Computed example of a mutant assay.
Amino acid sequence: MQIDACQKPYSCEHCGNTFSRSEHLKSHMRTHTGEKPYACKVCGNAFSDNSTLKSHIRIHTGEKPYSCKYCGKAFTQNTHLIKHVRIHTGEKPYSCKNCDATFSDGSSFKRHMRTHTGEKLYSCKVCGTELSRSSALKSHMRIHTGEKPYSCNFCGNSFSRSEHLKIHMRTHTGEKPYSCEVCGNGFSHSSSLKSHMRIHTGEKPYSCESCGSEFSDRSALKSHIRIHTNEKPYSCKYCGNAFSYITSLKSHMLTHTGEKPYFCEFCGLSFSKNGNLTTHVRIHTGERPYSCQVCGFAFSQNANLKTHMKLHTEGRT
């Protein structure tokens, strides 16, 4: 008695899936039992079916028997070739019923569908965070393990995510792919451009809960809050003095190192602080930006104006 080709008399007792051949059911059952009887002799990886092992072995042998008729690119698996060919044909057989988006491969389609369903298949065993993609879980786990597999070839800094390394590399290459449409200034990061745009729009979305001061970016608000909390997270390794701002620490460090990086272009004198150089340059330029509102006398330094003002206030008493 012959079994009709359309019949699938073999059923899985776990999930109900049916199969036309007993060996297919046997292979399927391993997805439930976790059995992996086919082991790679090179690396020891085990697989539930022989065909998957054969495909895997090509990683070691370098064999790529499936070639693209359009560009000649070769693949280790036929499924990879089928997916690749759609780049040339433009075929996108997977359609989303919710938003009409189309996809060339099933895995991309499944990932997309989770944006609609909110389904999160992957859970972190450490903190319980749920994620919709296995790659996102893998990246998330590095928060707990501290693993940083992406290293900078220039300075050796390492990062947990490849996109963070990509952004960091711009500090070495000088690449600034994000440009301001108003003034043309370039930025290495999209968030920096977003913050910069607020200079033009005047937007200040970050407010201080203590005094109501408003800021255009979060980091400026964070620095400001230290005025109220008196937090000083930056410490001098030489004397232990602490500062609220990194710029204040850098300026202080020059008192220990003796470094004077700011040079006068007129006479060559050097200074440890940019503010001191600015004040000094007025000797050469004659600039006096601080004026007395009583008599109009002008000064190159604000301190001198304050001393002068006492002449008027003391005269009144």
Rank of each mutant, 00 (worst) to 15 (best):
K73V: 10
I167L: 12
H280S: 04
L131N: 06
K54S: 10
T89V: 12
C211P: 05
I87R: 06
E91C: 04
A298W: 00
G72D: 05
G106C: 15
Y238I: 14
R170V: 05
C127S: 05
K83Q: 15
I246K: 14
H308K: 06
A5V: 10
I283A: 04
A298F: 00
S134I: 14
A46W: 05
G275Y: 07
I283L: 01
G268P: 00
S158W: 05
P37T: 02
T145Q: 07
T285M: 00
L254T: 14
E231M: 02
K73W: 02
H28A: 09
K97V: 13
I246D: 12
H196A: 03
A5K: 15
K176R: 13
H189D: 15
T33H: 04
Y234A: 03
Q301K: 10
A39C: 10
H24G: 09
T255K: 13
Y206W: 06
G146T: 09
G202W: 08
G128L: 01
G184K: 05
P65T: 03
H32E: 01
T18E: 12
S210V: 14
S160E: 08
Y70M: 12
N302Q: 10
I225V: 15
H80Q: 11
Q77I: 10
E203D: 12
A46V: 09
K166S: 14
P177F: 11
R111N: 15
M113I: 15
F266H: 13
I57S: 09
R142D: 00
N185E: 13
C40K: 02
R133T: 08
S235I: 02
C155Y: 01
M29W: 08
K125G: 04
L193F: 05
M169A: 09
A136G: 11
F215L: 01
K83V: 13
K176A: 02
M141K: 13
F243G: 00
N185F: 06
G202L: 09
N276D: 12
F19R: 09
G258E: 03
Q301A: 12
N98S: 10
Y94G: 06
F75K: 06
S179Q: 12
S67P: 07
E147M: 05
Q301C: 07
F47G: 03
G72P: 03
N45G: 11
T115P: 04
S48Y: 02
S179G: 07
I227V: 14
G106R: 14
K69A: 14
R161L: 10
E214S: 13
E181N: 15
N153M: 08
M309R: 12
R288W: 02
F103E: 09
C264L: 03
T201P: 00
C12A: 03
A39V: 07
Y70I: 14
R30A: 03
S67Y: 00
T171V: 15
G174A: 02
N153K: 14
M197W: 01
C12K: 00
T79C: 13
R282H: 07
P65K: 11
T33K: 05
L193A: 10
R198E: 05
E287H: 03
L137K: 10
T285P: 00
T317H: 14
C264D: 10
F297S: 14
T145E: 07
S179V: 08
R114E: 03
T278G: 01
T257F: 03
G62W: 00
T61Y: 00
